[in-house]
């Protein structure tokens, strides 16, 4: 033991110096550094989680946008279809109205024509009767009772189909 130099006070001094080093390092190195490790890993965890959250939010927002776009497109198409349908209807209605109007016009024209024709025929008949009475007066020189004459002529005209009323 002497040859190696083991002695108790030295041994105790070295144990004490180890404990001093232990204590000092514990407070100056291990504690702060371990706390730093924990803090850092906590931070990293938080950032990763936050990044994950942001990513999820972005994905959700994108999804929402996509849906909005889809609905907008659908609505747009519907609006177009509705407009086209409305246009068709309007055209058809206009067509119908036009047809109805045209038919009305034609009818009116035909009635006008009919009326004018009747008028003309009536006048013609009047004139023709007068003419016939004058001619007959001339022929027989005898003035018939104008009223009796007219009846006679009417009768004749009624029998003949050519200048029929109606």
């Amino acid at each position: 033991m002497e040859g190696l130099g083991i002695n108790l006070p030295q041994l105790i001094a070295q144990i004490v110096s180890f404990l001093v080093l232990f204590g000092l390092l514990y407070f100056f190195a291990y504690k702060p550094i371990l706390r730093m490790f924990d803090e850092r890993s906590q931070r990293i965890k938080e950032s990763v989680e936050q990044a994950e959250k942001v990513k999820e939010e972005a994905a959700a927002a994108e999804e929402e946008n996509r849906k909005k776009l889809e609905t907008a497109a659908k609505e747009g198409q519907e609006a177009i279809a509705r407009a086209m349908r409305a246009g068709d209807e309007a055209r058809q209605r206009a067509q119908q109205e036009a047809q109805v109007e045209a038919a009305g016009l034609v009818e009116k024209a035909r009635q006008e024509i009919q009326r004018e024709r009747d008028e003309v025929i009536g006048e013609l008949r009047q004139e023709f009767a007068d003419l016939a009475v004058a001619a007959a007066e001339k022929v027989i020189e005898k003035s018939l009772d104008k009223e009796a004459h007219r009846e006679l002529i009417e009768k004749v005209l009624d029998e003949s189909t050519g200048l029929d009323k109606e």
Partner: peptide, 28 residues
């Protein structure tokens, strides 16, 4: 306590280590 040269050396080691630790952790 007999002060030996190894004891002084171990104190120097302690000083160096603690100084290194303090240099880092006082403004970690």
């Amino acid at each position: 306590i007999t002060i030996t040269n190894t004891l002084i050396a171990s104190w120097i080691t302690i000083v160096v280590l603690v100084a290194l630790a303090w240099a880092v952790t006082h403004r970690i």
